[in-house]
């Protein structure tokens, strides 16, 4: 009898604790995936899993192998995914809650690209339109749908 009461007590504690845990589950905000208008160069799911590998491979090509004509460029990512305020100013993609920062905060991975790289597009010259031109060199089958994204869920 006493054993059974003990077991119930343990169970009650476990249930209570899981309630506390559940209440705290939302403490890291879900990422905000602001989808750029038009086509992303890869399907969302693919980009989510592989962007870090792509960027690492491509940085070698660009910096060391003189192959600047590549589809995956950090400047293109920034040009499409940067947020513009109503007054037309750019919000850096690594600012809290922005495209890059919100996911990286959620998964707890330090984002250090923008210690060196510009987190906003150049005022002149490079625009989302230029970035999208590059997208049309991507085989159609690999192209993401863009615009919608699966509900902004991680």
């Amino acid at each position: 009898m006493r054993v059974r009461a003990g077991l119930w007590a343990v169970l009650a504690v476990v249930v209570a604790l899981s309630g506390v845990w559940a209440a705290h589950r939302g403490r890291v905000a879900f990422p905000v995936i602001a989808m750029a208008p038009g086509h992303c160069i890869l399907k969302t799911a693919e980009m989510r899993r592989t962007h870090m590998m792509l960027l690492r491979a491509v940085r070698e090509d660009i910096v060391r192998r003189d192959a600047r004509d590549t589809r995956f460029r950090l400047t293109h990512c920034v040009a499409c995914h940067v947020e513009r305020t109503a007054s037309g100013r750019f919000v850096p993609v690594n600012a809290p809650g922005q495209f890059c920062a919100s996911c990286h905060a959620y998964v707890g991975v330090r984002l250090d690209c923008f210690d060196c790289h510009a987190a906003v597009p150049a005022r002149k010259g490079f625009t989302a339109g230029t970035a999208l031109q590059a997208a049309f060199r991507i085989p159609r089958a690999l192209r993401g749908s863009g615009g919608q994204g699966p509900g902004g869920q991680p």
């Binding site: 400047t75 210690d115 060196c116 510009a118 150049a122 490079f126």
Partner: peptide, 28 residues
């Protein structure tokens, strides 16, 4: 020191050496 407001074509940041790039992006 930490750097901000880098140009998209000229990434630069604390803890690295740098020098003239012959404006490699322009040249290309």
């Amino acid at each position: 020191r930490n750097v901000s407001d880098q140009k998209p074509w000229a990434p630069r940041g604390k803890g690295t050496a740098e020098g003239c790039t012959m404006c490699v992006e322009r040249v290309e």
